[in-house]
Every structure is written in structure tokens, then in C-alpha cells.
């Protein structure tokens, strides 16, 4: 026991401005994919391979557009490889927004010159957590009097999103420093954070959990599953995204979204 405490003291401060190794962070991370080629064969192959049915070609006003739905995309990268390389991973950050529709991006297919690097790709990841975290703390201070109580509910995912949420409590992130706390009872919660696809066997549990929460309250869908069903989509066993069953105030894409993106998404819905 004593040794543990001595070790802990010796470890010093591990809470990071940005977690993880800095070198290679941005380059290696997968986020959002932009159209890179309008070649029909590549697009066809990408649509066939996409496990989440996140890619579509639509016609609007006689023009063809490729649609990529960041609310479905599980960032597998299959549409950016080999013969199917119609897309390219250019944004490190996953998508977030206040409506599921806002996560759908369109790329005109005629005369398309290829994707340029998005502005957020060039951002230095180094100061991201501290900056976003500070903004979150500000909002929490203003709207929720310094503390935001979050109740988590897994509606039927692979558990990847849940583990990432759990990591928010790792000393490197220490989400409590921003005034965010995970609570056991929905009666104490301001925010319901949903991960996972809406399974048939949990619909009732989700509705009841929300009913138990006092108002004002917010619902945030985190991860491709909670937004659209992700790779699990809609089936005999599931309804797709959480918003098929309850009203959702904010969406964060990713499979799973990384912890810093979760911090950012919490801020977004509060603003």
C-alpha cells in the first residue's frame, strides 16, 4: 500500500495538455474521409466495401454527387485503399453536429479535382485538449453552475465507445477538472450520453432512463452506432440510431470517437 502511494507521488503530474505521444499523432489518426477520385470503378468498389453503408451517389439537379455520411462511417479506411480508393482520410477529427443530417457531406462528382487538406487537419493537435477543455469548463460554469452530471447508457454497441468514455477518467484526461462527473442515477443527471446501436431489447430501458431524468436535460449520441447504427445499421434486432426512439441534441461520429473528441462534443451541445 505504502509503495503504491510512493509510486503515485513519484509519478508526478501525468494529466496532459494532450494525451498520448505527440509525434505521429495527427498522421496516424483516422477521422473523416473526403472524396479523392470520381472514377466510377473506384466509387463502385468503395460502396461495395463500406461496411457501414456510409457512401452513396445521389443525383441532384442533374448533377452527380458523392455523399459520405460521417454519422455512419466507422473509419475503417476500406474506401481509401487499392482499387477502391475513391476517398482519402484528410481530417483527423471525427464529425460532430446538432443534427444527424449535418453529418452528411456532399462532393460534386463532375470535374472534381481531388480532396484538399481540410483546415482542421493542419491544426496542431498539441493544444487541443486544453483549449477545448477550457471552453467546456467555461460553459459548465455558466449554464450548469460548475458541474455537469452525465449518465451513460450503452444501447447495444461493441463496448468500444464505453471504454473510451471510461478513459475520460484516466488521470491524463481527468475530465472532472472541467466540472464533468459521471453519475450512477439518471435522477442526478443533466446529460444522457448514449453509445451503441438502439437494440430492440434496450428500447424500453432507454426510454425509462430518460423519463427518470429531471429537466432541463440533454441527450448526446456518441459514436457511429448511436447516430445511425454504424456497422449494425437496422435489423430484426435493432432500430439504428438513438434518435429513432428519443430526441437527440448532439451527435459525435467516430468508431469509437477518441476521448478528446468526446470532451469537445460535450462542449458543443452545451453552447
Amino acid at each position: 500500500m505504502l509503495n503504491l502511494i510512493i509510486d503515485a507521488l513519484a509519478a508526478g503530474r501525468v494529466t496532459e495538455e494532450v494525451p498520448g505521444p505527440r509525434a505521429g499523432w495527427a498522421a496516424a489518426a483516422v477521422g473523416r474521409f473526403d472524396l479523392a477520385s470520381s472514377a466510377p470503378e473506384a466509387l463502385r468498389a468503395a460502396i461495395e466495401l463500406c461496411p457501414a453503408e456510409a457512401i452513396a451517389v445521389e443525383r441532384s439537379g442533374g448533377k452527380a454527387v458523392a455523399v459520405i455520411d460521417d454519422g455512419r462511417c466507422v473509419q475503417c479506411g476500406l474506401c481509401a485503399e487499392g482499387d477502391a480508393a475513391a476517398f482519402k482520410n484528410v481530417h483527423e477529427e471525427p464529425a460532430m453536429g446538432r443534427s444527424a443530417a449535418s453529418l452528411r457531406r456532399r462532393f460534386p462528382l463532375e470535374g472534381f479535382e481531388g480532396a484538399s487538406l481540410g483546415p482542421d487537419f493542419a491544426l496542431d493537435a498539441h493544444d487541443r485538449v486544453s483549449r477545448e477543455g477550457a471552453r467546456l469548463a467555461e460553459v459548465v460554469l455558466k449554464r450548469f453552475r460548475r458541474s455537469l452530471h452525465v449518465r451513460h447508457l450503452d444501447a447495444g454497441g461493441c463496448n468500444g465507445c464505453d471504454w473510451e468514455l471510461n478513459q475520460l477518467q484516466a488521470p491524463q484526461y481527468d475530465v472532472q477538472r472541467f466540472g464533468v462527473d459521471f453519475v450512477a442515477s439518471p435522477r442526478h443527471a443533466d446529460v444522457l450520453l448514449v453509445t451503441g446501436v438502439m437494440t430492440r431489447n434496450l428500447e424500453l430501458a432507454l426510454v425509462r432512463t430518460l423519463d427518470a431524468m429531471p429537466r432541463p436535460r440533454l441527450v448526446v449520441a456518441m459514436g457511429a452506432c448511436a447516430i445511425s447504427g454504424g456497422v449494425f445499421g437496422t435489423s430484426y434486432a435493432s432500430r439504428g440510431g438513438a434518435d429513432r426512439v428519443v430526441a437527440v441534441d448532439g451527435y459525435l461520429g467516430g468508431c469509437p470517437p477518441r476521448p478528446w473528441a468526446m470532451i469537445r462534443a460535450l462542449r458543443m451541445v452545451l453552447e
Binding site: R200, N201, L202, A205, V231, F232, Y236, A237, S238
Partner: peptide, 11 residues
């Protein structure tokens, strides 16, 4: 169990 049954095999 089976609250998180998603029908993976069928999918």
C-alpha cells in the same frame, strides 16, 4: 443477457 443482441451474424 442478450440486451445488446445486434444480430451480428445476420448482418
Amino acid at each position: 443477457m442478450f440486451y445488446v443482441h445486434r444480430g451480428v451474424e445476420r448482418l
